[in-house]
Design a protein around this nucleic acid. Structure first.
Length: 297
DNA sequence: GCGTCCAGGTCTACC
DNA sequence: GGTAGACCTGGACGC
């Protein structure tokens, strides 16, 4: 099959592997990681009806990422694919300030050493919001089931085995009953439906959130106004939008924190917040990295 | 194989 | 502003 190769120069303090394993997103379709852990695959939308599978890797010793597309791309398409990959891998976000902060503490020194801090996000804000709703109040295995069923039943077929993430229109066209039955999304189905229908009808816009200058508290309030997005989901979506001053505590973080800092005994949210307050606007990201340090080392 | 219980975050109603 | 109860599913467990 003919395909297109694109290269993207990597910024300083960037680790491809650290972004891919920054959180669970690479485990949710259409994301996939190759068996040898060197390639991240997903599907990007070049225009409303045209999709391409991209496979991103960082060849050893190279100063650029390689992006392999499963289809020949025109010049404009190559630029679109490059822009989306840069955005997903957070390649335009400087980490200097965070890394300087972390160098001051022995426990956090691995962060600049591993060039960690960038959190993988989906090709679109819509995809991130849907996936975040699918992480609420359920096990990770159920999250995977819901997202994978949404993708494989409502996404566009890109290869024999790969589908794009569904568009808002594709979800909006279904009924709540269908979503409950076919995706196991349960009571989350009306939330997914309302979000998709509002976007499909033009009554709600979310894609601008990655580039807007909207103040963080206003953006958080905006996210909270979406049905199905509570404190946990809004806090964590903020991280994917480049704002790190919200902790996004969930049962896993509370338990992990208790394990690391309190011999497994429960700790109040306010005590967790107090510990990370000193990291200012980076506190949410420092908290997440501190809790997941074992994933990287 | 079947029934029961549990974990998980958000919404709504109520105080 | 805080709290209780309902929502729904997969998985663990006991029988």
């Amino acid at each position: 099959m003919s395909c297109t190769h694109i290269t993207i120069p990597i910024p300083k303090a960037f680790s491809f592997r650290a972004v891919v394993h920054s959180h669970g997103w690479s485990d949710l379709e259409p994301f996939a990681v190759s068996d040898d852990d060197t390639e991240l695959r997903t599907v990007v939308s070049l225009s409303p009806n045209r999709h391409a599978q991209v496979a991103v890797s960082h060849p050893r010793g190279s100063t650029a990422l390689t992006v392999r597309c499963n289809t020949p791309l025109r010049r404009n398409d190559r630029e679109t694919a490059r822009r989306i990959v840069r955005s997903m891998l957070r390649m335009d976000e400087p980490m200097d300030e965070l890394h300087a902060l972390c160098r001051k503490e022995e426990r956090l020194q691995w962060i600049p050493q591993m060039r960690a801090g960038r959190m993988l996000r989906s090709a679109t804000v819509f995809e991130d919001i849907v996936k975040m709703i699918c992480t609420t109040n359920c096990s990770w295995s159920l999250t995977k089931i819901i997202v994978n069923r949404l993708t494989n039943t409502l996404g566009t077929r890109v290869t024999d085995t790969v589908h794009s993430f569904p568009s808002p229109d594709a979800i909006a066209d279904r009924t709540e009953r269908w979503l409950r039955k076919e995706t196991s999304s349960g009571y989350r189905a009306p939330y997914l439906l309302e979000l998709s229908r509002r976007i499909a009808s033009g009554n709600l816009s979310v894609e601008h959130l990655r580039t807007t200058k909207m103040p963080a508290d206003e953006m958080h309030k905006f996210l909270r106004s979406i049905k199905g997005i509570g404190h946990y989901a809004a806090d964590n979506l903020m991280k994917l939008l480049g704002h790190y001053d919200y902790l996004g505590l969930d049962s896993w973080i509370r338990s992990r924190y208790a394990e690391i800092y309190n011999h497994g005994r429960p700790v109040s949210d306010s005590a967790i917040e107090k510990r990370y307050r000193r990291y200012g606007k980076w506190r949410g990201l420092v908290c997440w990295l501190d809790m997941t340090s074992e994933w990287h080392q």
